[in-house]
Design a protein around this nucleic acid. Structure first.
Length: 998
DNA sequence: ATCGTGGCATA
DNA sequence: GTATGCCACGATG
């Protein structure tokens, strides 16, 4: 086993021992590569390139890989670097924006094609096994300055690979720059040539000259030439400004006096910070050999055929076979050499079929090679052992991570322990908060098992969890991110096996770990009950993870991390092979931190309002109950549909009774409504039914909402923190639970009262922004229905238009009933209409409903075409797609059971419509935090999503600005990936509570 | 305690 | 007719 041999080389485990870390000392040759510079150059200097199979833009990734490979080869041969790192800018906002808000403010956002390539390029760096470094709040240049200083301090030799003039201030003895494009060293002389002053005065010159690209103001009218002249004459900026009055030229003198402060601000912007507190130690930059398999798999997945071969040959590795190629993948990069062409031809000739691609097979094979052996897991209880695991995670560049807590609800959960896995079968558990076997109030303390102090362990783990060069892999990592966020740790970068499965296999089953382990690894995970069964504690409620003995906890927890790592190895390669990278990278993964923020924020709820409503509902319930008992003459359980059905249809022999499939009398509200409308009924029976309906409404509102919600108010925050499931629905919608805040009543007056309990904090407003008719608009677009598109373009009442088109009634003074029918039909269309369902909905005969549908199809023939095409597609391929490429599978679609098939066909018709709408709001949500930041709305927080509605909380004074930004983001969310052929409209309103805001 | 069923809240 | 989650009941273990 690799673990063993590695450990064998390290006889002692002490806190100072970081196997794999290489200290920097005299003679070290440290290479710091300006990653962002590389990216932009790769992007702009090279022609655009898209991945043949799915059109994902990958030009910058390709150029970057090419440049990095060339650089690695050349320097390895000539200069033998000892340390190397690629350093990236982390985000738009840095500490410089605090000094000067306009810094880099006018810089346009990166081109759309470049955005999905940023994470891929980081993946590439990791695959090359080069340290991949970034830090929130700092520019790459500051990190480079810091590493350079550290290296020089101990006598190392630094090369900064960049041609950015902003880095020239760092040149000094021991530090040179290298322009990879021109293959030219930049030393002291070259800096003097560029700036007219030596490197140590570059900052002074830049402070005067400013920089229009970065929006560094400088002093107007002074460029590099003049600045250099002045600095040469006066020595430095401060002396110059002190003696500004002595300057001969009047214009120059006045400007220097007037803009002295601006020059000083400019200096603080230009001066690089060389004492950043780093997340990645410089020792971790030690040069390592590439991960050959990972690198080649990555290049294959990107479909860089020539580059894959070139690098495979360069590494002396076997050229991996190409991935399974789909129909559209015949376009290949032209071969560059005769020799390459031969290889290409051989590859083309090789049989390529729909079987799993080589990378996929390889990943799955490793994941399954050895069965899960719980006895091999380690319980980590010493600092030294934890440091060893962290170190190995760093070396591997990735780690599966899982937390164990006291509660399934992440905002209430207390951390009990966490597990790590570095490779298949290599996993450990770090207990932190176990109470021990007799976990009662009195004896618990003494029985606490020996374990690391939580604070100490987290302090060691934080740099790993936040290390941009180590990928953290989780299963439903949203949960772990929330738990860690509450301890001040932001996990990044990450992958989520649940979301990988969701993107790949939506509709093919559940995406929980147990289901995935069984499906992909043939492994049955230990259940919580199994592990817990061995713990003492009479009451179920006592059985939290904290009480579990360490041996069982280790088996259970480490297995989770092990299985997660194996699932990642199985699923991640499929992403590229099955062309789901764009879906995962643009619709799934980026949503996780957004949801984490929303769940963390929660929404304020007024306990008193709910309690008052509960009382009102209780009183009304009692009165209704008395009335019903009086009418019936004896007591029965009103909440039992069985008893009610027997009363109405067996004893009172009321007409129109229908049975459910289990033989019970049906007593749904719909049916009771019809029953009450029946002329044959006497007054008492009618009163009974109507009272019963009212009783049901009252008890529903009370039990599901006003009684249940207060229990969810978090004691610390006073707010309700719902949980959003990201992989629960087949269509791409989110699901809300614990509590479900996506089904808070709105239709009835009494129900809507409940919404008044959802309030904004003091000095704040709630803003609700909702898409108008989003699904019908999507339908108009995907089915290409001219009348619908025209109606939306003109802002007409869409249901009235439908009614007018179908029944020939003028829109003006249209009877409400006519419009209601048209509305029902419109919804029916979205749901994959059937005469049976429409008849049910409208309370008309099946024949009449069938006629409506016929008329509808005559007036809008495109709808029938769309439905037929969708059915054809799903039968032929077993899946349908949203407009953004999300796939929804229907593996059972060809079932012989006709009613089942009908159901699946309707679901398949609905899925692209509901799913595309879900994707649109996902895109809006993903963009929202950055948009709020740019719009300078730090008080605004997104709190809730209700399928076509987003709820925000914002300072009173910013409400109207938020409405503007939120609407813009939501209305343009489909772009630029898809330009809809209908306008998208969003309504938004601010108020003190959710009822008034909606 | 846990499960299936009926019923009902939302988009 | 689509997509969810939660409640109470009543039968099961």
């Amino acid at each position: 086993m690799t673990t063993k041999s590695k450990k064998d080389q390290v006889p002692e485990q002490t806190s100072a021992d970081f196997s794999g870390l290489v200290p920097v000392s005299k003679g070290s040759r440290v290479y710091l590569i300006d990653g962002s510079g590389y990216i932009f150059r790769a992007f702009h200097a090279l022609p655009p390139l898209t991945r043949p199979s799915d059109g994902l833009p990958v030009g910058a990734v390709h150029g970057f890989c090419q440049m990095l490979w060339k650089f690695l080869r050349e320097t390895k041969a000539s200069e033998a670097p000892t340390h190397m790192g690629v350093i990236f800018d982390a985000g738009r906002e840095t500490f410089r924006n605090e000094i000067y808000p306009k810094y880099k403010a006018q810089r346009p956002p990166p081109p759309e094609e470049l955005i999905p390539q940023f994470p891929l390029i980081r993946d590439a760096v990791r695959a090359f096994n080069v340290a991949c470094i970034e830090l929130d709040g700092y520019e790459a240049d500051d990190l480079i300055a810091t590493y350079a200083r550290m290296a020089v301090d101990v006598g190392g030799d630094v090369t900064i690979v960049s041609s950015d003039k902003d880095l020239m201030q760092l040149v000094r003895p021991g530090v040179t720059m290298f322009d990879g494009m021109k293959s030219k060293r930049i030393g002291r002389d070259e800096v003097i040539e560029k700036f007219g002053v030596p490197p140590e005065k570059v900052v002074d010159v830049q402070s005067l000259a400013g920089d229009s690209i970065d929006n560094v103001p400088g002093v107007p009218g002074i460029g590099i030439k003049t600045a250099a002249e002045l600095i040469a004459a006066y020595g430095d900026l401060d002396s110059l400004l002190a003696h500004a009055g002595e300057i001969k030229q009047p214009k120059r003198r006045e400007k220097l006096i007037e803009f002295a402060e601006q020059a000083r601000i400019s200096r603080s912007l230009v001066l690089l910070k060389d004492d950043v507190v780093l997340a990645t130690a410089i020792e971790a930059l030690g040069v390592r050999d590439p991960h050959v398999d990972a690198l080649l798999a990555f290049l294959r997945a990107m479909e860089f055929n020539t580059l894959t071969k070139r690098i495979a040959v360069g590494l002396g590795a076997e050229v991996p076979p190409p991935l399974a190629v789909s129909v559209g993948a015949s376009v290949k990069a032209p071969p560059q050499q005769a020799k390459t062409r031969d290889l290409e031809t051989i590859e083309e000739a090789a049989p390529v079929e729909a079987s799993p691609a080589a990378a996929v097979a390889a990943g799955a094979a490793i994941a399954r090679a050895e069965g899960v052996d719980r006895s091999k897991y380690e319980a980590v209880t010493t600092r030294a052992r934890l440091e060893d695991w962290i170190c190995r995670a760093r070396e591997a560049g990735r780690v599966a991570f899982d937390t164990e807590t006291t509660d399934l609800n992440a905002v209430d959960a207390e951390l009990v322990g966490l597990s790590l896995a570095i490779a298949s079968g290599e996993a450990c558990y770090v207990p932190l908060g176990h109470t021990g076997p007799s976990g009662d109030l009195f004896g618990g303390e003494d029985n606490r098992p020996q374990q690391l102090d939580a604070e100490e362990a987290l302090a060691l783990l934080r740099p790993l969890l936040e290390d941009p060069s180590v990928l953290k892999i989780g299963q439903n990592i949203k949960y772990d991110m929330l738990v860690m966020k509450r301890r001040g740790i932001e996990i990044a970068p990450f992958d989520d096996t649940m979301l990988l499965s969701y993107a790949l296999d939506g509709g093919r089953g559940q995406h929980g770990m147990d289901a995935l382990a069984e499906r992909h690894l043939g492994h049955m995970c230990m259940t919580f009950a199994q592990a817990m069964g061995h713990a003492p504690g009479a009451k179920k409620s006592d059985k939290t993870f904290a009480a579990m003995p360490l041996d069982k906890a280790t088996e259970y927890a480490a297995e989770d991390a092990d299985v997660t790592m194996r699932l990642w190895m199985t699923l991640k390669p499929r992403l590229a092979a099955e062309h789901m990278t764009t879906v995962y990278e643009t619709l799934e993964r980026p949503l996780v931190p957004v949801i984490v923020g929303m769940e963390h924020a929660g929404i304020k709820v007024d306990r008193d309002i709910l309690s008052r409503l509960s009382n009102t509902f209780a009183q009304r319930t009692v009165r209704l109950e008395e009335e019903i008992n009086g009418l019936v003459g004896h007591k029965f359980n009103l909440g039992s549909p069985k008893q009610l059905g027997e009363l109405l249809f067996d004893r009172l022999k009321l007409p129109g009774g229908k049975k459910t499939k289990s033989g019970q009398w049906e007593t749904r509200a719909n049916l009771l409504d019809d029953l009450a409308a029946n002329e044959e009924l006497d007054g008492d029976a009618r009163r009974l039914i109507n009272t019963m309906l009212e009783w049901r409404q009252m008890t529903k509102l009370k039990s599901t909402y006003t009684d249940a919600l207060p229990a969810y108010i978090n004691a610390e925050t006073g707010r309700i923190h719902t949980s959003y499931a990201l992989g629960a629905t087949t269509t791409g919608r989110l699901a809300s639970s614990d509590p479900n805040l996506q089904n808070i009543p709105i239709r009835t007056k009494e129900g809507r009262e409940i919404r008044t309990a959802f309030i904004a904090d003091k000095g704040m407003k709630l803003v609700s922004a909702d898409y108008s008719q989003i699904e019908l608009r999507v339908l108009a677009h995907v089915a290409d229905i001219p009348q619908l598109k025209k109606a939306f373009a003109e802002g007409l009442d869409i249901h009235a238009m439908t009614a007018s088109e179908m029944f020939g009634v003028p829109i003006k003074d249209m009877p409400a009933e006519v419009r209601r029918r048209a509305k029902a039909i419109n919804f029916g269309i979205i749901y994959g209409i059937s005469a049976f369902g429409l008849a049910n909905q409208l309370g008309i005969s099946r024949e009449e409903a069938g006629d409506y549908i016929k008329t509808y199809f005559q007036r809008f023939p495109g709808i029938r075409d769309y439905m037929d095409a969708t059915k054809k597609q799903v039968h032929a391929h077993g899946h349908v797609e949203t407009i953004f490429g999300r796939r929804i599978h229907y593996p059972e679609i060809n079932t012989k059971n006709p009613s089942m098939r009908g159901f699946l066909e309707r679901a398949a018709i609905n899925a692209p419509i509901q799913g595309s709408a879900a994707d649109i709001i996902r895109r809006a949500m993903i963009r929202m935090p950055a948009a709020l930041k740019i719009a300078k709305l730090p008080s605004a927080k997104m709190l809730l999503q209700v399928h076509d509605e987003l709820v925000f909380e914002v300072a009173d004074s910013d409400a109207s600005a938020l409405i503007k930004t939120a609407c813009r983001v939501m209305e343009t969310a489909a772009e630029p990936a898809v330009k809809l052929s209908v306008p998208i409209h969003v309504d938004a309103k601010a108020a003190d509570n959710w009822d008034e805001a909606h």
